[in-house]
């Protein structure tokens, strides 16, 4: 176990170092790309579509976007990169005997670490705007549950994609669909009642709504959300580990 942890650390460090190796702006890219995306969504949804976060509050739209955007990026990056990670490291997987499960987990965690900078920046902005409050720390358990969810899905992706590589082709579209069908860019109330169920079919919705509830409403997430999150996280982690352990045995043959 100690060894798996140190391996995990090395893969994370390696991933982050390789990401910035040879790039002139280095760590700045962590902020630049999301900042650009935020500006675009801000313009489109706030100025063009006139989305308002909550009808009865004065919260600017950009704060609403900032509150969960980086959490979404971390989930999305984790899922899409996990699918490709074993293929990218085919040589390593085929030629060195090590616990392969560490690779997708490391890549997922490194995504969270990578986007954590954005989260911190968002919360600094909240603090200066007088939005922050002590209850905000309750997002930590939600984040931990979300990480479990990410790891679980990442493991499933990492194990299945090498067998059915077509999945990787559609992952981008599925993730885009999940993004637009989640309350990251608009409030849940904006969706007509009869369509709301669709948004809840998206597993990420409960996490996003929980963050919103803690950050903007200073409320615990609804009990159903809490149980929902625990259920989804545990289930995906459980299935992820099962699937990965089953499928990873044949990996060296197909990579």
């Amino acid at each position: 176990m100690e060894n798996k942890l140190s391996l995990l650390k090395y893969f994370m460090v390696r991933d982050i170092k390789v990401k910035y190796a040879g790039s002139a702006l280095g760590i700045l890219w962590t902020f630049l790309m999301p900042a650009l995306q935020i500006l675009i969504y801000w313009f489109v949804f706030s100025t063009v579509m006139r989305v308002r976060p909550y009808s009865n509050s004065q919260i600017p739209y950009v704060y609403y976007l900032l509150s969960t955007f980086f959490f979404w990026l971390a989930v999305s990056e984790g899922i899409s990169r996990s699918g490709a990670i074993l293929i990218e490291n085919a040589e390593l997987v085929k030629k060195v005997s090590f616990p392969n499960i560490v690779l997708p987990v490391a890549i997922t965690l490194s995504g969270y670490l990578h986007h954590f900078a954005g989260v911190v920046l968002a919360f600094i902005i909240f603090t200066f705007s007088g939005l922050s409050h002590i209850h905000m720390f309750f997002i930590i358990p939600v984040l931990i549950l979300q990480i479990f969810f990410s790891i679980g899905i990442g493991l499933i992706m990492a194990a299945i994609v090498p067998y059915i590589r077509d999945i990787q082709q559609i992952t981008g579209y599925v993730l885009q669909g999940m993004f637009f069908l989640s309350p990251v860019i608009y409030p849940l109330d904006a969706i007509p009642e009869r369509f709301r169920l669709f948004v809840f079919l998206n597993p990420i919705t409960v996490y996003i709504e929980s963050y919103h509830s803690i950050i903007f409403k200073k409320q615990f997430p609804e009990t159903s959300y809490i149980f929902g999150m625990i259920f989804i996280s545990c289930l995906s982690l459980f299935i992820g580990i099962k699937v990965f352990n089953k499928l990873s045995k044949g990996l060296a043959d197909i990579l």
């Binding site: 060894n3 391996l7 090395y10 390696r14 170092k17 190796a21 060195v96 090590f98």
Partner: peptide
């Protein structure tokens, strides 16, 4: 991209040496 030392540690972790 990594130094010899980093790679030695990394390889060690890979095959199970702390």
């Amino acid at each position: 991209e990594f130094t010899g030392i980093d790679n030695i540690y990394f390889y060690g972790s890979l095959i199970g040496i702390t």
